[in-house]
Amino acid sequence: MAAEQSATDYIVHHLTHAGLVPKTGAIFNFSNMHLDTFWVALALGFLFAGLFGYVARKATSGVPGRLQNFVELIVEMVDTQIKDAFHGKSRVIGPLALTIFVWVFLMNAMDFLPVDLLPAIAQAIGYYGFGHDPHHVYLRVVPTADVNQTFALSLSVLIIIIGFSIKAKGLLGWFKELLTAPFHAEGLGMQIVLGPVNLAFQIIELLAKPISLSLRLFGNMYAGELIFILIALLPWWINWVLGTPWAIFHILVVTLQAFVFMMLTIVYLSMAVEDH
């Protein structure tokens, strides 16, 4: 690949999504959609749902098999984290945390595939199957290196946070908290003065949560992907010198980012149901 085009072209090609329409350069363009993110994430979602659903359906409380053991290990880990951090009762938080952890982990783990493997296959299919110019067949295989994916997750979490707050405190209770925390006032006058300040703080706090969640994940995965692309620019015989350590280090990043996303979601939901 690198031989036929300049390094810049190679990198740009690798960092371009398979969109519905060509990129306009605008930050918001809701007439576009990233097909690569969608299909890869969906396939990984099916992998997760299929594997875990299969194990759950065949699960036995007797002696578990290796696959069941592995699945149980993950479920137990998630359950332990929830029991430690979340002091409430909810049917949603367990499945939510499990889905986040496994799905994000799988999407992050797409980084371990050779950077050219799936794009080259896509280009071959595009060229031989549909007669497209290979230079205009784009595929990014790490959905979590797409802001749309990470913000989709974190904004969904934001909605769930608000839902948990309202469920725990009631709609009026939640509104009241928006106006009276974090600064508590005694007299009515002070309360009116502090109301807007509190509201501003609460809104910043609420918005900071999904932004930090999604940008942390996106930044880590985008940087990881970019470094893999840069390493791929090296001559083939020296590639492993940097590629191997980075891939090994990336195992940690991939797992840790999935765990951090899940853990922070649990913590935020726990804060949502507790009184300030």
Partner: peptide
């Protein structure tokens, strides 16, 4: 670029 993928992925 934020686009309809945001909603789709959600």
């Amino acid at each position: 670029e934020f686009n309809a993928s945001l909603i789709g992925q959600a």
